[in-house]
Amino acid sequence: MLESGDHVASSIRLWGHTRLFSPWRHLIDPASRRLLEAAAWSGPANEGHAPTGHELVDDYLAPLAALPEIGSRIRFGARVVAVTREGMDRTRTAGREKAPFLLRLQTADGDFVDLTGRAVIDASGTYSTPNPLGSSGLDPIGTADVDGLVLHALPDVLGADRTRFAGKHTVVVGAGHSAANTLIALAELAKAEPGTRVTWLIRNPSAIRVSSSPNDELADRAKLGSRVDRRVHTGQVALVDSFEISRLQATDDGVRLLGRRRGDQAFLDGDVVVNATGFRPDLSMLREVRLELDDIVEAPKRLAPLIDPNLHSCGTVSPHGFTELRHPEPGFFVVGMKSYGRAPTFLLATGYEQVRSITAWLDGDMPAATEVQLTLPATGVCSTDLGSSGGSCCS
Rank of each mutant, 00 (worst) to 15 (best):
H49C: 07
L67N: 05
P63I: 03
A119L: 07
N46H: 14
A62S: 10
S42G: 14
G43V: 08
L149A: 02
F112R: 14
A39S: 15
T107I: 06
D109Y: 07
N131V: 10
D58F: 01
V57R: 01
G71W: 10
R162H: 08
A78E: 15
R92D: 10
D145T: 13
H49W: 13
L154E: 01
L154W: 03
V81H: 06
S136G: 11
G134Y: 04
D145C: 05
S124P: 00
I74C: 05
A160D: 06
L154V: 01
I141Y: 11
G125T: 03
R162D: 00
A123E: 09
A99M: 12
D114G: 01
L133V: 03
P44D: 07
R75N: 00
T129S: 14
S72N: 15
P51Q: 04
P63C: 08
R104E: 13
D147V: 10
R164W: 09
L158S: 05
S72L: 08
I74K: 08
T91W: 14
R118M: 07
W41E: 04
R118F: 10
T129D: 00
V80W: 00
G110I: 10
L133G: 02
R79I: 00
G117V: 07
K98F: 12
L151G: 02
T91Q: 11
V150W: 03
T129H: 15
V83N: 04
F101V: 11
T163N: 11
A62Y: 03
T116W: 09
L154P: 00
R92F: 11
P130S: 06
R118H: 13
R73I: 02
T52A: 03
I70F: 06
F112Y: 14
D58H: 02
G167P: 04
T143V: 02
T52W: 02
S32I: 04
A62V: 06
A65Q: 01
A78I: 09
L36V: 07
E47K: 01
L103Y: 11
G95I: 12
A66W: 00
R85S: 07
F101A: 04
R118K: 14
V146R: 02
R90M: 07
V157C: 01
P130M: 06
V83Y: 06
R162M: 05
L115Y: 06
T143H: 06
F101C: 05
L56T: 04
A153N: 10
P63F: 09
G87T: 04
L133K: 02
A50R: 00
V80A: 15
S32D: 12
R118N: 14
L61F: 11
R92W: 08
F76N: 00
D139K: 12
Y127D: 01
P51W: 01
F112W: 09
G71Q: 11
P63L: 07
T84R: 15
G134R: 05
T163F: 08
G77P: 05
G137Y: 08
A153S: 15
Y127V: 11
E97R: 14
T143I: 01
P132Q: 07
L115E: 15
S32V: 02
T129N: 13
R90L: 12
R162S: 03
G167I: 10
K98M: 13
G117Y: 11
G134Q: 03
I121M: 13
E97G: 07
P44R: 04
A82P: 09
V81F: 05
